[in-house]
């Protein structure tokens, strides 16, 4: 079983620290969801994990080997970035077929048959230039590169950005098919949390460059509750528990609790307890005003 391990990684741009002391282990054969607010450091983290950018501190290893400039380790990792080309510059001047051809040269496990099949299923015209296609089509290109790379560790940065609901559902379907067939590890960052939640085995949440949690998605959701009612009742029932997103409405109060092992909400109070979905948990932990 291979592992991609980060020990104490941090990343600074001049004086600004954008990734702060993250310890993280990605085990093989799982689908991870990477969620965080805009500017939390998701893309930066993915670029560090794939050795596209250097860390400012700490170390990232693949099976014990540092991945920086390590061709052997990088054969097992693919980060398919979100593309934002302009029509006159850089990647925007390339045709889709040229981009995929370059991917086939550099990604050692490249599956041409799969790439062709996906191009056909996405109905992409490979002669079009990247700067002239829609955001959704660019997402399709990044999905093709990620899936056809056949890399053991595959990272996707907002792969469903710009896709309509039909294509999003199709993406989750082919992702699960590929996962079932190959057992590859996927790390997917997304803002459309609830839709993707059923696909994630584990969730990695980052907030302001720090790792907030890394946990089994189902277990996380099972220990998160929204408690509401009269303020004094809610306070009494949740005494000693860590509270998030506290909302006061006159004499009423609502808050979210994340129960640790052995903890529970006190019974016998006139309160309403609701289970939460992953998106609600994320908002509770990372919402505006939440520290």
């Amino acid at each position: 079983m291979s592992e991609l391990v980060c020990k104490g990684i941090c990343k600074k741009y001049k004086e600004k620290e954008v990734i702060k002391n993250i310890d993280l282990t990605l085990e093989s054969g799982k689908i991870y969801g990477l969620i965080g607010r805009n500017g939390a450091g998701k893309t930066t983290l993915l670029s560090l994990l794939s050795s596209q950018n250097p860390v400012s501190g700490g170390e990232i290893t693949y099976n014990g080997q540092n991945i920086w400039e390590n061709k052997e380790a990088l054969k097992h990792i693919c980060f398919s970035r979100e593309l934002n080309p302009t029509s006159n510059n850089g990647v925007g001047t390339l045709k889709i077929k040229d981009y995929l051809k370059t991917a086939s040269i550099y990604l050692p496990g490249w599956d041409s048959a799969m790439a062709e099949r996906l191009v056909s299923e996405f109905e992409l015209d490979v002669k079009q230039r990247m700067g002239k296609i829609s955001k959704g089509m660019l997402s399709m290109v990044t999905i093709i590169v990620a899936l056809a790379s056949k890399a053991e560790y595959t990272f996707l940065d907002e792969p469903v950005s710009g896709l309509d609901v039909v294509m999003r559902e199709y993406f989750y379907k082919i992702l699960l098919e590929e996962y079932a067939e190959s057992g590859r590890t996927f790390l997917i960052s997304t803002h459309i949390i609830e839709e993707a939640a059923s696909v994630f085995e584990e969730v990695i949440m980052i907030k302001k460059g720090e790792l907030l949690l890394k946990e089994n998605a189902e277990e996380l959701v099972s220990r998160a509750f929204h408690v509401s009612g009269k303020a004094e009742e809610v306070d009494a029932a949740t005494e000693g528990l860590l509270k998030h997103q506290v909302e006061n409405h006159g004499r009423s109060k609502g808050l979210t609790v994340l129960l640790e092992p052995g903890q529970q909400i006190r019974e016998g109070y006139d309160i309403k307890i609701q289970s939460l979905n992953l998106q609600n948990v994320f908002v509770a932990l990372c919402g505006i005003g939440e520290k």
Partner: peptide
């Protein structure tokens, strides 16, 4: 520097290569 090298970096090529 503007196109090809960032492109190959994004596809797993190291800086030295």
């Amino acid at each position: 520097v503007k196109l090809n090298m960032p492109l190959v970096l994004s596809l797993g090529c190291g800086r030295k290569e």
